[in-house]
Design a protein around this nucleic acid. Sequence first.
DNA 1: ATGGATATGCTATATGTGAGCATAAGCAAT
DNA 2: ATTGCTTATGCTCACATATAGCATATCCAT
Lengths: 323, 323
Amino acid sequence: MDVERRSTGSVAAPATLRLNAVIVSVVDTTPRVLTVRHADGRPALPYGLLRDDDRTLDRALRRWVGEQSGLELGYVEQLYTFGDVGRDPDETARTLSVAYLALVQPTAARGDAEWIDWYGLLPWEDWRAGAPPFLDAALRPALETWVDADPDPACRRRRRDRVDIAFGVDPEWDGVRVLDRYELLWEAGLVPEAQRDRGADGAPVPSTALDRRWQGEPLALDHRRIAATALGRLRGKLTYRPVVFELLPRTFTLRRLQQVVEALAGVSLHTQNFRRLVERGRFVEGTGEFEEQTGGRPAERFRFRPEVVLERPRPGLGLPRRS
Amino acid sequence: MDVERRSTGSVAAPATLRLNAVIVSVVDTTPRVLTVRHADGRPALPYGLLRDDDRTLDRALRRWVGEQSGLELGYVEQLYTFGDVGRDPDETARTLSVAYLALVQPTAARGDAEWIDWYGLLPWEDWRAGAPPFLDAALRPALETWVDADPDPACRRRRRDRVDIAFGVDPEWDGVRVLDRYELLWEAGLVPEAQRDRGADGAPVPSTALDRRWQGEPLALDHRRIAATALGRLRGKLTYRPVVFELLPRTFTLRRLQQVVEALAGVSLHTQNFRRLVERGRFVEGTGEFEEQTGGRPAERFRFRPEVVLERPRPGLGLPRRS
DNA sequence: ATGGATATGCTATATGTGAGCATAAGCAAT
DNA sequence: ATTGCTTATGCTCACATATAGCATATCCAT
């Protein structure tokens, strides 16, 4: 990128620009994210560069994802642009990443690419079997310690509020606040990245210990943060746009639809109410075909009705709680 | 920005990076956006550059907005990163803009900066006095002409669907789809920018005429598109985060709160139901003071209760329709 | 046949929303 | 003082929607 000069005389930062992709698919009941191997051996989100002949950022993304992995991306959405200094400790210049979310149907990974479990990265986000026990047993206590560690009462107060909002005790857990939670854990020094990222600055990392098992699998650089942003955004979008269907084949059973929604939302849903929502919302139409391998009563196969977006202003699958 | 080389041998595009700000305040009942004068004489969104010593993009934004206009930004949110080629016809390199939304309380503009009416840019978005009459009289017919202008029936079908979704006939008008609407008008050649932007390519601009009055005031470059993105995002956010209060002084009457919400949402609200929402949602608390200059019964002054974000998962002001 | 699993329908209750009526309390002109 | 207009505020009814169950249908494996 060109070095620009500001009229005030200071030199604009030279920067490296990247496009990052959080490519998601749901296999069985597991939401997965495509990763590649980074120089430091950790998994990382795939990235690519912008070329002169890429007319738009979206097209650039589709091009290099196709080149690298052979995947044809369907649904694509810009997530966020990350540009803090020190994101990549090996680079001398600032690295700017424009991150994208993409949804695809299950496909085999190619080359060094690998699908990993999204909840392997963010284990506290999976509430399908109820609240993860380690939340109360280990995570919240560790956060408490961090809250109390600040000498200033006002700061403690702010920390406590943030924890309460993100990890919701009094109100309830808000599935969308994935990034808030990750950032708190990072600040509290409860994920390995905190150590790594602050090594340069020499700022002290709180020593609050948290068992490795509950810290989740880290990614290279700040990529777990990007993955958290993506999960939060996707969960939000589910409720007002019919994006789930991008992850499903042309026909599917209602149970399968529910599984995929549950995988992304990270909660178990009340089946009967979910079905009512789906049918009354006219998201799908029956095909008359039936699935035989259900292990129970055969389920009808449905297909998505794209017309819903014409019929209702903000068609999304509300999430009827509980199993 | 550094010129990068990809392993495939192609040269990465040199690019210029900017930060753009959509700075919003509501004066009386008018939502306003801060503009500066661009080289071509048109108003433009203020922009600034990233410096080495800006640790984060947010900080960079706050720094140069402060330097340029003296404004201290409170609420700031990253909107979108725009990077299509040809955004700035005068630049040889691609210009990347990371756009931000910022909310401030009414403040005088400094230097060449000027506050302009947001609905001067997007007149079809203001439904506070009911549906703008020119929508049915001029805008929709012009869009119809554009829809029918495509020789391919499948394309016509897609165009019609997009128009129906964005300008909602059967379902209803969705206030959030501001960008969809602006983009359609652009594609249909119904805003002056379309002419300007496509001059270079030589692609034909549809000749569908639309009275200048209904095209809205254009901004320099693609800044009206950014302003549209901002309005849509803000309208969405209103419904699930208490951001309105960033635009209000410490105490305010419920009527004032309603005015500001109406100004942003672009609709008139049912006062009684709005009050019910606000009070039952515990967004505010009374101060016991009363406004005397109402021209009617004195109104109590209220203050925002920041605790709501602790009490409820997604506290926002639903929009009870109609006046 | 029996039990377990899945699919699917139905309903009682609570809650939320839209729309309107009614009253309270100020000001201004008569 | 009375009347009428304005804004503020309280209340209610009807209707839509969501929550949480119960109940039944239909298959498979034993």
